[in-house]
Design a protein around this nucleic acid. Sequence first.
DNA 1: GCCTCATAGTGAGGTAACCTCACTAAATAT
DNA 2: ATATTTAGTGAGGTTACCTCACTATGAGGC
Lengths: 145, 145
Amino acid sequence: MSTQEEDETLAEAFWSVSRTLRHRSHESISPLGITPAQARAIGVLRRHGRMRISSLSDHLRIAPRSGTEVVDALQVRGLVLRSPDPDDRRATLVTLSSQGEEIAEAVRKARAAEAEQFFDRLDEADRRELARIIGLLRRPDTQQP
Amino acid sequence: MSTQEEDETLAEAFWSVSRTLRHRSHESISPLGITPAQARAIGVLRRHGRMRISSLSDHLRIAPRSGTEVVDALQVRGLVLRSPDPDDRRATLVTLSSQGEEIAEAVRKARAAEAEQFFDRLDEADRRELARIIGLLRRPDTQQP
DNA sequence: GCCTCATAGTGAGGTAACCTCACTAAATAT
DNA sequence: ATATTTAGTGAGGTTACCTCACTATGAGGC
């Protein structure tokens, strides 16, 4: 088996695990009545606090237009509030409402519990090792384009 | 930082890397003119050979109706062929056409090259370690529901 | 053999999660 | 002052699923 094939197999394994993780994560927040994309946005807002919609889109790595959409959906549900940016009249700020903060905390808890259950099959050393390796993979790609 | 929080962070890191991998994988096959879902189906057919649409759906872990759809799309492009199952007149068999097999091989190559480039930042020991740990995570969940 | 239930595939209709393009208004650079 | 860039969003589109319902067929039980 060549290196390429090993790496493809590794990629497939990676994908398979991440798919399972994604599915379980989705189910863990489903009772809260929000979708995965909304949960992601809520997570960014919880960590970052008030921010521009464009910044939210950057964090989520989606198109600005899609950022608008997820904020729309959350606003309809009363989970976020929009306000004009005093520093730039083109821009809009978005922040979690108090209800949104409650949901955000519930999301965080549900996700954490699910993740703990998922990774529970690894011992402490393996978890640390996995975190280390994943950290390497997360670095900006040093390969030339 | 509690164990739950560490695990949630690990899950997020996992998701972040898998998102990158997914995006790069998508780009690597984009020149072939097929979508990620189609590529997945092609991959299963390449490995498994002729099979029922229901089985394909099982392998892909999608609803049977969605299996029908991806086969429809591939059939329109001449990449798969449908035939009745001689053992069960309710069932339909699907297999790659010769053109489909060429595309399947191209997909495999593109993906492998991309995966090699992605994991190239890890040394051999880390790759093996990662594969070992991922293998643990891939096992059926031994936790009681 | 007959009946009931399960299975296989698919038509119809739907949602979620993105995307691009185009536009207006505002900010920045020259 | 003018040209270019930026921020948000309307309009329209694609992809990748999903559920429900239906027909035809197969399996199991009596």
